[in-house]
């Protein structure tokens, strides 16, 4: 642990401010709570929101896992994990089951989460209506009045153009039947995992200075039309490494002649399902 920093980098007053905002976020599921986002030692878009939430929650006994697009070994994940082991001296892990706190970018682990775990999402754009309504004052009013017809305009456009709802990530959800919420850019494959999850889900947007939460066992509903219901992605392939057919697969180009393979996006889940691990 580097002694020049306070535990988990942020000073105690800042962590207190963050915790108060988080308490409010948990009390009003899906509501975007403004907070005083700090300058962090990494650029906006690299997870400044998530990293501040993690910093506010970490205790000395926590075990941290960081996921970037499902993988534990990519730049963003490695950097953030090393950052917290340096400034907080906490234990880190790549195993979902061993972690008490999981910071994630763009995925929810395939392994089911438990009540004693917290999932922290990095969010680039917390406002699901933003592409349709650029004015912040107006989107806040729409949230206050639960006036969400506009979101269906986007889904309508999808069907009109592509014959189906083509939105495949950052798929809008309604939290606890009240607040329209962005699930962060997770694939819509992960949306059902939000619904009534035993783990607490927290979302931090550093640049936009907003926090929101989906408390445990909260109803989360993906928007759809009556005659175009919400559908999950599916693959004709199995994972080339572990043979799984129920996880989210990445398509990887492996050489210059266009050979492809499909592998699990969740590296921890994949390594746990390989034949040698099962034996």
């Amino acid at each position: 642990m580097t002694p020049r920093y306070n535990f988990a980098f942020l000073d105690e007053d800042t962590k207190r401010m963050l915790r108060r905002a988080l308490l409010k976020a948990v009390a009003i599921p899906g509501y975007q709570v403004p907070f005083g986002s700090r300058e962090m030692p990494l650029p906006y878009g690299w997870g400044t929101g998530g990293i501040q939430v993690t910093a506010a929650l970490l205790g000395p006994d926590d075990v941290l896992k960081v996921i970037d697009q499902g993988a534990d070994d990519t730049t963003n994940a490695v950097n953030i994990r090393r950052f917290f082991s340096r400034v907080a001296g906490i234990a880190t892990t790549e195993r979902t089951a061993d972690a008490t706190l999981i910071q994630t970018r763009h995925r929810i682990p395939e392994t089911s989460l438990r009540e004693d775990q917290i999932l922290v999402f990095q969010v680039p754009e917390p406002e699901p209506l933003r592409t349709l309504e650029p004015r912040e004052a107006e989107t806040r009013t729409l949230h206050a009045l639960a006036d969400y017809g506009l979101m269906h305009v986007k889904l309508y456009e999808d069907i009109a153009q592509y014959g189906r709802i083509a939105t495949s990530y950052d798929y809008p959800v309604l939290v606890d039947g009240r607040f329209l919420t962005s699930p962060s850019p997770i694939p819509k494959f992960d949306n059902p995992k939000l619904d009534r999850s035993p783990a607490l889900m927290l979302f931090g947007a550093g640049r936009e200075k907003r926090l929101y939460a989906i408390p445990p066992y909260t109803r989360v509903e993906s928007l759809a039309f009556d005659d175009h219901p919400f559908e999950l992605q599916s693959w004709e392939h199995h994972c080339a490494l572990c043979g799984s057919n129920d996880s989210y697969l990445d398509e990887v180009v492996v050489d210059d002649s266009g050979t492809r393979m499909f592998v699990c996006s969740d590296t921890d889940y994949c390594s746990g399902h390989r034949p040698e691990a099962r034996a």
């Binding site: 349709l132 006036d147 017809g149 506009l150 269906h152 305009v153 986007k154 309508y156 456009e157 069907i159 009109a160 153009q161 759809a224 039309f225 009556d226 005659d227 175009h228």
Partner: peptide, 27 residues
């Protein structure tokens, strides 16, 4: 008008605001 969405979506928007959620009927 909402200029960044199609003519059909412009006409259907007010219906969706009233809670109509059936794509074929909207269309």
């Amino acid at each position: 008008l909402r200029l960044n969405v199609s003519a059909g979506a412009n006409v259907a928007e007010r219906l969706m605001a009233l809670g109509m959620r059936h794509y074929s009927q909207l269309r």
